[in-house]
Design a protein around this nucleic acid. Structure first.
Lengths: 206, 206
DNA sequence: AGATGTGAAAGTTTTCACAGCC
DNA sequence: GGCTGTGAAAACTTTCACATCT
């Protein structure tokens, strides 16, 4: 199977959401035309994207909504649960901890860590805030594979280094800093301000 | 000036962040090589991106950090403040409200709205939570141009329609739903789960 | 008949390589 | 000498159009 582009993966996630909505609407079958319309892309794009992973449709008929959704779930690695830890118990961290969509998609935040000793021992729901120095033990004990980083920009690289040294291979970083990771570790950045900047950029062009 | 790609704008935001860091580090001058390295792209890419907007460098010398940063700030529309309103006073909304990076870049959340009458009148800092039905008045009074939507998926389209009908031309949507907006309105989606799905997808490919 | 799957064409983005200027 | 700015080439992505299959 040849390399699949980042754009395709983003669209796969999008198709997956829309298929979930269709399943709830009791829709049984979907054509590339309809799926395209619901995702704001072209029908040919939908077919090309899906063809990277297999032949899921029936010619003259379309795709079975439930089956296609399960296929994509498996492609995205969502056919199992993932244990994650959250580093940074500030207000963004708290919101992410409470964000229900993560759990709904199979991402469990099983530990919360912070370097601020004032927050230590405090509990959120059934999670207790632990010191960063306990990371190694916690990562091993709880089989954590993904770290969510919601700390200030200045300490992000240090936190990521610690996570990597404890064996975490996937990092979701919310700090607006360029972060270095060694090969084999997957880093994904979310920069909330960037999305607003796109909007104001668009305003100035019209 | 020809059309500029979305990827270029994303990188311009990234350059802007890194230049801010360099300014703090007292760096005066930067070459496309160094800026490229700090942003994880190629030097040619940096030069091509910048050349979409003008000739900011001195040959044989490089770019003046402070000047380039100011130029990009102006390109992104950050050379003025923007008033925004936040719709959705749940936990994600609360975190966004408290997120300092928005204000630092010139985005002020000047109003918080919710449709849940239980939350009405409650105050966050110096902001009072208002009913959605007051939106029109608030948008006019406070000169709000951008709406930040942090409501459940099921009510997102309705909230966006209301914002648009009140004259808001830019929408930042956090709900994992496909949203329709009329031409002339700029919509930007942030899907937090999608970033995690990219990570688990990458895991399954290795 | 009707919709998928897919090579080929068109379009877009990135990289190359070097002329041009400091 | 050194680094920018930029046409041209290469790489990549999307769209087209139709053969293929139910």
């Amino acid at each position: 199977m040849e390399r699949v582009s980042e754009a395709t993966i983003r669209r796969m996630s999008s198709y997956y959401r829309r298929l979930g909505e269709m399943e709830q609407e009791q829709v049984k079958t979907v054509s590339s035309d309809l799926l395209a319309e619901r995702n704001g892309v072209s029908p040919a794009q939908v077919r090309k994207d899906l063809s990277c992973f297999g032949n899921f449709g029936k010619r003259g008929w379309g795709y079975d909504v439930q089956e296609l959704r399960e296929r994509i779930r498996s492609i995205l690695g969502l056919d199992r649960a993932w244990n994650t830890c959250l580093v940074g118990a500030g207000n963004l961290g708290q919101a992410l901890f409470r964000y229900k969509e993560f759990k709904r998609q199979g991402f469990n935040i099983v530990a919360v860590l912070d370097s601020d000793s004032h927050k230590m021992g405090r509990t959120w729901g059934d999670a207790k805030i632990s010191p960063l120095t306990d990371l190694k033990r916690i990562v091993c004990d709880a089989n954590i594979e993904i770290g969510i980083v919601a700390v200030p920009a200045g300490s992000a690289q240090e936190v990521v280094d610690t996570l990597v040294s404890c064996g975490v291979r996937g990092i979701l970083n919310f700090a607006p800093r360029q972060i270095q990771v060694p090969p084999g570790v997957v880093l994904r950045n979310v920069d909330l301000t960037m999305a607003l900047e796109w909007i104001t950029y668009s305003f100035t062009r019209k």
